[in-house]
Write a protein that binds this DNA or RNA. Structure first.
Lengths: 172, 172
DNA sequence: CTGAACTTTCAAAACTTATTGAAAGTTTTA
DNA sequence: TAAAACTTTCAATAAGTTTTGAAAGTTCAG
């Protein structure tokens, strides 16, 4: 496979993969393109490489910046803005976990608390099943909250090293 | 909040939450409904509670069964099929991880291997950046693959207990 | 200032995905 | 075996999401 073919395949696959995770195809493709670019790219270069419109490029680059995955690069003496992606995948993964936690889990936890305070007689089977389920989800969420916070703070070597050592003795 | 209000809110929120994760709203709502039902529900009850069509109910219940989150329950002496959801959230989470891994990571790993075999001169900056990025992703994916396999096999108590103990000394 | 170079916005159009409901299929009962 | 009870399918349609591109906005050199 030539570099050009490999690039095209990586961009297409990363884009398809992204859609499974609620990220839009173009956003994932721009991310892929920037991941494999040795140098920062301008909006025009992104448009050209992916055959997308200016508005689309702008919107999705902005969203990648919001997610903390891409940065603007200003080159001295140039008007144009350039964009470059964080290349260390461990940092990328941590950043994604951090943002999703903020946008999802952190919003869900107070909702679960509210739901757990439903009124009604615990001897009523419907009430009991409801509160048991919500409390089960709450316990899980609180645990996930703590675990993810720790992961977000961890550095790669420590995290993978410890986890692997931990798991090593537990295989069946 | 009354039970009826709480149920409605939980179903709506779980549904909204699901769409963030590439699960369709109806599927997540049916899952929510079954999670909080003390007894298995029939297709008609699901249709009625969520105001959805028969086809929609059937399709999404089937998908929940495919994901291993819901089971058919046959009651002696009754024609109708009933459906009930696994209520233990740790099992639900493990099942989801297992299925997503199968549908996503397991498909991605061979693609990354193929991409890492791109031809070209390593002294070419474009080639080097490409292969470095792909190899970085491969290393991460291989690690994730192993970690997830172990998690899938782990039982709740062991996993959370060990992980928490591990993390306990590492807070800042 | 002014105008060129560039970025951002947003309404309309294209595309994608989910839902309906009636018809077809299957199983059970009598 | 026939009809009732139930489940599944799928083409049409509705709903939701993404993309376009032209217009508006911003910045900066001269």
């Amino acid at each position: 496979m030539t570099l050009a073919e490999a690039k095209a395949k990586f961009i297409a696959d990363w884009g398809r993969f992204g859609t499974n995770w609620g990220i839009n195809r173009t956003m994932a493709q721009i991310h892929a393109l920037l991941l494999i670019s040795p140098d920062p790219l301008s909006a025009d270069e992104v448009m050209e490489e992916l055959s997308i419109s200016r508005g689309n490029a702008n919107m999705n680059v902005r969203e990648l910046i919001d997610w903390g995955l891409v940065q603007k690069v200003i080159r001295p003496g140039e008007r144009k803005e350039y964009f470059s992606a964080e290349k260390d995948i461990w940092k990328v993964a941590r950043q994604i976990v951090k943002e999703r936690k903020k946008r999802e889990l952190d919003l869900m936890i107070p909702v679960l608390k509210e739901l757990s305070e439903v009124e009604g007689d615990k001897r009523d089977k419907a009430v009991k099943t409801f509160t048991d389920t919500i409390n089960n989800i709450r316990k899980f969420s609180d645990q996930a909250d703590k675990t993810l916070d720790t992961m977000i703070r961890a550095d790669e070597h420590w995290f993978l090293g410890s986890l692997m050592k931990l798991f090593a003795g537990k295989r069946d």
